[in-house]
Amino acid sequence: MRKSISLFFLIMISTVVGLVGCGSGEESGSGDDSGDGESLKIIAAHNQTDPENPYQIGMKEFKKEAEASDANIEVEVHAGTLGTSESELVEKLKLGGADVVLVSPGFMSKTGIDEIDLFATPYIFDSYDHWEKVVDGEIGDQMAETINEKSNNDFKLLGYWTAGVRHYYGKKPLESIDDIDGMKYRTQTSGVVANYWEKTGAVPTSVAWGELYQGLQQGVVDAAENAYPYFVQQNHHKTDNGKFITETGHDYTTRFMLINGKKFDSYSEEQQQAVMEAADAAVKKEREVLYEQEEEYKQQAIDDGAKVNEIDRQPFIELAKPIQDQMAEESGVTDMLEKIRDMK
């Protein structure tokens, strides 16, 4: 009996000590630097692999600013390691495999948000000043709301990035719009971008970005289109089918920096504010670097032996207008299109 009583008291004392210990641990956690006792790890991803790419520099700025806050945030940046296909990144964002990604309108429109393809329509913008006025103003805010609502909060816009102004590069220079007729042209193979290039007579052809150097070298495609920092970093201009660059300037590109909206809503107010401030810093840094690199990599292409020529863009621009009108009407953004045109 005495042994049983002693054992009972030992169990009681151990239980009390355990409860006190748990209470002490909880108090210690509530005093964490994050304010909520919870650390936050963010997986941020893009599809470019070059360490000097503006995407990578912008994402590193996001990481630096987020981790410098008092919100107890860690950011892990993946440069092409979670996928070089933007459709993969969109899917990972939706399913939780990534928290922040960079994607283009063409891939986002495949999620059923047709309105955003307006920003990818050729010749919708005619300068960086025009582009910035649009995306940083009322229209950009309206598009951000559309993305969030139509994705059911799977996607929340953190900011508008750019991937430069896109030009033609191929096996021969373009002296007129007729010169592109019949060429196998690496570009999007569906949507408004593909519709436009089909109208020029080109044959839109799908080649993965990571395989494009080989595709140009082996003649899988006759030409492609992109901005100087992107195709020069990948040495596309050193291939026989990439060394003639014609400055068509058909797309002042828009890229969406997105976060999973449902996850964002679960963050503390302090963490949400830190993420938004870090995103703003990343937007500024990425644009600044991109604008500098455009001239830098154009000169590198020339130094490497690429041939650059200008072209009368007006026939290209005139061809784009009815395609812009049709796209806007089908997506219900005609008013937005007219506002963009009025801002030129």
Rank of each mutant, 00 (worst) to 15 (best):
M1L: 14
R2S: 09
R2T: 06
R2L: 12
S4I: 14
L7W: 05
L10M: 12
I11Q: 12
I11V: 15
M12T: 13
S14N: 12
T15N: 11
V16T: 11
V17R: 02
L19D: 06
L19Y: 13
S24K: 08
E27Q: 10
S28E: 12
S30L: 14
D36Q: 01
G37N: 01
A45P: 02
H46N: 05
H46S: 05
Q48I: 01
D50T: 08
D50L: 06
P51Y: 09
N53Q: 10
K60W: 03
K60D: 01
K60N: 07
F62P: 00
K63D: 03
A66S: 12
S69K: 03
S69E: 07
N72V: 01
E74Y: 00
V75H: 02
E76D: 09
G80M: 01
T81E: 03
E88I: 10
V90Y: 00
E91V: 02
E91M: 07
K92C: 01
K94C: 00
G96N: 03
V103H: 00
G106D: 09
F107C: 00
K110S: 09
T111M: 09
I116L: 06
T121V: 07
Y123E: 01
I124M: 09
F125T: 04
S127P: 03
E132N: 08
K133E: 13
K133F: 01
G137W: 08
G140F: 10
Q142D: 15
M143W: 06
M143Q: 03
E145M: 12
S151V: 00
S151H: 01
N152R: 05
F155C: 01
K156F: 03
A163W: 08
V165N: 09
H167P: 03
K172Y: 08
P173G: 15
I177L: 15
D178E: 15
K184W: 13
Y185L: 14
Q188H: 13
V193A: 11
N195C: 00
E198Y: 03
A202T: 06
V203R: 08
S206V: 10
V207Q: 08
Y213S: 13
G215V: 14
V220W: 07
E225R: 11
N226V: 02
P229L: 06
Y230D: 06
Y230V: 14
F231E: 04
Q233C: 02
H236T: 02
H237R: 03
G242F: 12
K243P: 04
E247I: 04
T248F: 13
T248D: 08
G249K: 14
Y252W: 14
F256W: 11
I259A: 00
N260M: 00
K262P: 04
Y267Q: 00
E277C: 02
E277Y: 04
A279L: 05
A281T: 08
K285C: 02
E286H: 09
V289P: 09
L290D: 05
Y291F: 15
E295Q: 12
K298N: 06
Q300T: 15
A301F: 03
I302A: 14
N309K: 11
F316V: 11
I317V: 15
A320C: 11
K321S: 06
P322F: 10
I323F: 11
I323Y: 14
D325F: 10
E329K: 07
E330V: 10
E330M: 13
S331I: 07
G332K: 07
V333Y: 06
D335G: 14
K339I: 07
I340V: 11
K344E: 09
